[in-house]
Design a binder for these strands. Structure first.
Lengths: 261, 261
DNA sequence: TCGTTAACGTTGTCTGGACAAGTGGTCTTT
DNA sequence: AAAGACCACTTGTCCAGACAACGTTAACGA
């Protein structure tokens, strides 16, 4: 087995048409080995020094190739332990047309929703929060932030801010923020979400258990009561390798009622 | 001015409490210099060798710090030219509830929509395409792929596949695919989109004019005719630094009509 | 038996150097 | 004045080696 693996990466000193950079060839070799099933999810790659010796390149070059693949999520590195082919993570789909909470969502698909509390407290609002929630500097806000887990795997970081009037006791929020809101009659009925992609910084990456610089889906959500008042301002970061958002679109009606398009 | 910049990064050999890795300190120094406006968008950073001399670290360490910032989009590197603070790009917002084409979308916000054709032709379907479009291996598909530009800036790569029956002459598609479909009475009225985040590979990054490994919003869209037949299967990659998707959500109705939730 | 320690192998950080390849300007030639 | 050659300077790739930080595991001691 090791012979097979070693065969893949072996490159004699003088041989081969070197067209591109070495680290790109090596990267392709590793990708191919995984695609062909020679290396399966969970398998360990040869150690960097071995790989360097096999491919007759320096360890720096090996690291360059490996880090590219770690960035794309194909490999996982564990300090002091080794480099492994990433296990296949099945993506969770989140429908975009209905307003649901994480807890409800996971329950519906039979996964265990857990939370890791990062913060539950009352603060002075940031400028951002003042604008979005329509508060003055004298009023205060409740912040509720946590890591969301499904079946024990961290999926998302959720940082919610609400007016302290609407949620006066953030420490009493249980598993579901929406449940707590419903209890005081402030459950939102409408929300606007802004979806973007970005890279995770070191802190958030650590919270989600992925390497820094991994891609994330970022959601900014502003929720409204039926009265039109803003309830909640939430910024979430979802692991890109574990989350899809699904939306259904419809063709804009051919101006049957509207006047100016 | 150069003195100011040099002052930021100067680090005497023996001095300073080295708590973390050097490249992280250096990265923070650069971030701070930009945040404080000492380096403004468009400004060039000192050359890597100079930076290395200033901070008294090796060039490899400088490159490590700089590459991290290039990955997040804060810096831009041009081979042979230098490293620059990235210009601020204003994000384009895409509403998610209405089915629109890129061309219509840009026109509505007063931007010039352009295309760079990558491919317009008829092919045998890939397995993926056969499944999604419901075709047999004998039928053929039209593929239409292009880079989408707004005001000259590449924003997205769009790769559409349609049954050749629905679009027999892909070469005749003009600026708008939907316009071409409407002309033959096959304009879709409904679509399902799946949104995810990922990193751009070298090829796509080059097409979008961003460094490889930059984050992207990936959209997979399946469009339907009013008859329910699948029209179009499109995979798009949007630059994460230039695109937001906006969606409006509503609370799930309290089971008024439906039976099993 | 069970916890502790120590050795070993792994990835992480960093050095100082080298050459290749691309850019943008000057300077020469036409 | 325009075209081309050239040169200084930049980033890109790559090397061989060193030490640090972390895990795993096996040997050891209680």
């Amino acid at each position: 087995m090791d012979d097979v693996v070693s065969g893949i990466f072996t490159r004699k000193p003088g041989e081969g048409a070197r067209q591109g950079p070495l680290y790109i060839s090596l990267r392709r070799d590793i990708e191919r080995a995984i695609a062909q099933g020679i290396l399966k999810p969970g398998d360990a790659l040869p150690a960097e020094r071995e790989l360097a010796a096999m491919a007759d390149v320096s360890r720096v070059t090996v690291r360059r190739a490996v880090q590219d693949l770690v960035a794309t999520g194909l490999l996982v590195q564990r300090h002091g332990s080794g480099t492994f082919v990433a296990p296949h993570i099945e993506r969770v789909e989140q429908p975009l047309s209905v307003l649901t909470s994480f807890t409800e969502d996971m329950a519906r698909r039979g996964m265990a929703a857990d939370s890791l509390w990062l913060d539950r407290g009352i603060y002075a609002p940031s400028p951002d929060e003042m604008v979005v929630l329509g508060l003055s500097a004298e009023e205060s806000v409740s912040r509720v932030s946590r890591v969301r887990l499904a079946n024990g795997t961290p999926l998302a970081i959720e940082r919610a801010t609400l007016s302290a009037q609407i949620l006066p006791e953030p420490a009493k929020v249980g598993d579901s923020l929406y449940a707590a809101l419903a209890k005081v009659g402030n459950r939102p009925v409408r929300a606007i979400q802004r979806i973007s992609a970005a890279l995770l910084d070191d802190g958030d990456a650590a919270l989600l258990g992925v390497p820094p610089g991994s891609p994330s889906l970022n959601i900014e959500r502003i929720s409204y009561l039926s009265s039109g008042r803003v309830v909640e301002y939430t910024r979430s970061r979802y692991r890109a390798d574990a989350y899809d958002f699904v939306a259904e679109l419809r063709l804009r009606e051919p101006e049957s009622t509207g006047r100016t398009s």
